[in-house]
Design a protein around this nucleic acid. Structure first.
Lengths: 273, 273
DNA sequence: AGGGCTGTGTGCGGTGACGTACAGACAAGC
DNA sequence: GCTTGTCTGTACGTCACCGCACACAGCCCT
């Protein structure tokens, strides 16, 4: 077992084949369990942005939970049972385009919430939610969430503005996927993941990354080789370490920064990272 | 002048170069003016889905307006002044990814509204709104819209559910742009436009289409040639006619249908088309 | 009639990613 | 030790689309 000191995020992958066929991936317990976050109690930014009384009220409606890598929180068009406020876990939003043609269109970490579409008078999610980084999250039952969003003005406003930022993220990702080449997109993806992982090393396979970026696995090997040659990352056997964050930012496209800026302008300051 | 009987939609294009540099495109009056819609008074579906009293109330807050091709209704990050309910016009939602790298990510016709993000406690739009099919629309001042959405429950609910459908559309388009080839995407685009145009013939240049689909112009010429060889469309000098709608559907990807279904499942029945 | 603009057709070399396939490197289990 | 499964590196032919460039066709203006 490798994760001694660095406590990498568990993007294992034995399960990955099953993931592709969309068979029952839920409740896959990885052999290497996700290690607890490094320092202090992690928080969710959307909640901590609230004024004190509201924050406490919302907290009271949540329960802490542990998300394991590979868990599908919600299949597209299925009812959302709980919403999740990740703290040190993070969740991929994936479009279902039949069979192997899936694609990550958004990423939700401690700066966001999974299940936001409940705000829109619809009980389902249009996207698949896949736990991509195991860790802790706060969760809330849908019924409570709907009620809280209706009754608590500060909460509702924060959520609305996050929905705005997420929409912008979707649109930006769309253009990014169209125009930018693999190296660039991979750099962006790593940065986004790095932000949400709150650590430098995580476990993920080429295959998984290929799935997220909608390219073939061999393509990832090549792109990773190039980033590695530039000394931006180290990548051995499923364990990836970000070596040079600034270098990655230089290599990635403006989309990364655009998404961050939209968030900080409309939702609020990002804590940490 | 060609448009005698068919009264094609005016997707002219002299203005197109200016459009690319994002200089002042607003208020471009095309020499060939958009002809009025064919039969009966057109309606906006979101409004007509409302119960009678609400519908009247919302109507009372709107004023009819004429949208001209090429008008930029809102630059990204600029405040939204009015929301628009197209009736026989339609509007492209375009992501701003610097310079020539722009891309249509959504389309709003009589089934929708432009400016929906006002629901989200943000006064701006993340996307550029470009009138792509000239025609009529109802417009409402932002302040009135915000108020009406707050006070009128049926209205708010309809808008919320439309926001959901639009989000799904964004995500689907994203995957479509990634996986599907040009012929397929072009077929889809034509179908979406056809739905919103409520007529078979419209004026649009290869250059404009290239801009929307994020490809080079020569690529459109080739793809159009193929669709034409299949007898699906006729395309001469900026005038495009849909000949075989079913054929286009067969040629396009499942994305087209998926978007439609999401709409009809969550927002309501599509009238006409 | 002639010139200029706009829109279309076509061609050519380049490239990024694709699909596929196979071999090596490492890890876990027997 | 050996086997088995997972993960990675690499290679090769193919393909869709790119960037660029140029010629031509229809239309408007003078």
């Amino acid at each position: 077992m490798v994760n001694s000191a660095s406590s990498p995020i568990d993007i294992g992958l034995a399960t990955f084949c099953r993931l592709l066929d969309f068979s029952n991936v839920t409740k896959v317990a990885m052999s290497k369990s996700a290690a607890p976050a490094p320092g202090g109690t992690p928080v969710n930014n959307l909640i901590s942005l609230l004024p004190r009384p509201d924050r406490d009220a919302i907290h009271a409606l949540c329960e802490p939970t542990e998300l394991k890598f590979g868990t599908v929180l919600c299949q597209p068009d299925d009812p959302i049972e709980h919403v999740y406020f990740p703290t040190d876990s993070f969740i991929s939003l994936i479009t279902p385009t039949g069979a192997a043609e899936s694609l990550e269109v958004g990423l939700v970490g401690s700066e966001g919430i999974f299940g936001i579409t409940l705000l829109l008078d619809v009980k389902t999610s249009p996207l698949l939610g896949l736990v991509q980084g195991g860790g802790r999250a706060l969760r809330m039952r849908s019924s409570r969430f709907t009620k809280a969003a209706r009754d608590n003005k500060a909460f509702r406003s924060t959520l609305n503005r996050y929905m705005y930022a997420l929409t912008a993220q979707l649109a930006q990702t769309s253009a990014c996927n169209r125009f930018h080449n693999l190296d660039t997109r991979m750099a962006r993806w790593l940065l986004m993941t790095h932000d949400r992982a709150h650590r430098d090393t995580f476990l993920l396979t080429h295959q998984f990354l290929a799935y997220m970026l909608g390219v073939r696995r061999a393509g990832i090997t090549e792109a990773a080789g190039r980033l590695q040659a530039m000394q931006l990352i180290r990548y051995t056997r499923g364990q990836l370490t970000v070596l040079d964050r600034d270098g990655l930012e230089a290599e990635s496209c403006a989309c990364y920064d655009a998404v961050r800026q939209t968030y900080s302008r409309h939702v609020g300051k990002l804590n940490g990272a």
